[in-house]
Amino acid sequence: MYGFARRWAPWFGGCAAVAMFVALYGGLVLAPPDYQQKDAFRIVYVHAPVATFSMVIYTTMALAAAVGLIWRMKVAHAVAAASAPIGAWLTIATLGTGMLWGKPMWGAYWVWDPRLTSELVLLFLDFGYMGLRAAIEDPQKADKASAVLAIVGVVNIPIIRFSVDWWNSLHQPATTKLLGDPDMDGSMVWPLLLMLVAFALYYAAVMLVRLRAELLRRERNASWVREVLS
């Protein structure tokens, strides 16, 4: 696993950088302005990907934590632990870029709207997960306790995802759909989809670097560590 992470992280990172650059050009230069929001809609090219991955990363954490609990896999717990800070930072980016979009569109940086509030709860879940891990010294006990928190907290993910459909929200509905035509023109939508791919690669790259650190911290087998460090 360690060798895999070391070999592949630079490739994922490199591809992510190229894809982000092309998607930025497509989103900022090639895509036409929106007829309602003018050029302010371009914030979607950073806001939607970081928001999507704040949720994808939390879901990955919960799944990895569940795998770790059920099959007693240390690597799965390490994946969850490696993902948490990345998810927390992307949640901060979601709230920040959202506020910068909310101000010109709604007239306020923050409103206690279901979508915004549930995303803020996600940030507290990320913090809670990291705080719990940091507070427990024994790694195995930290794995178990934080896994339970991650699994219970996953209930918040569908609340964020569907909050705009379930309640009367100020937040606009989803831009892209899993099935069927998106609500955007092709010239507007391809940079967004490419940016989502870029963030998937980016998450993989950063997570693999953090996973190596997690594996080194847990490993007490000296010969294995000596081998990978030489």
Binding site: G13, D39, A40, R42, V50, G96, T97, W101, V206, A213
Partner: peptide, 25 residues
Amino acid sequence: SGYGTYVWSSFALALGIVLLNVWLA
């Protein structure tokens, strides 16, 4: 179209956090 402050600061914020994540890792 007049939204420069918001658009550019949101892109700068996102880029900053993307790079910070790499550095911290």
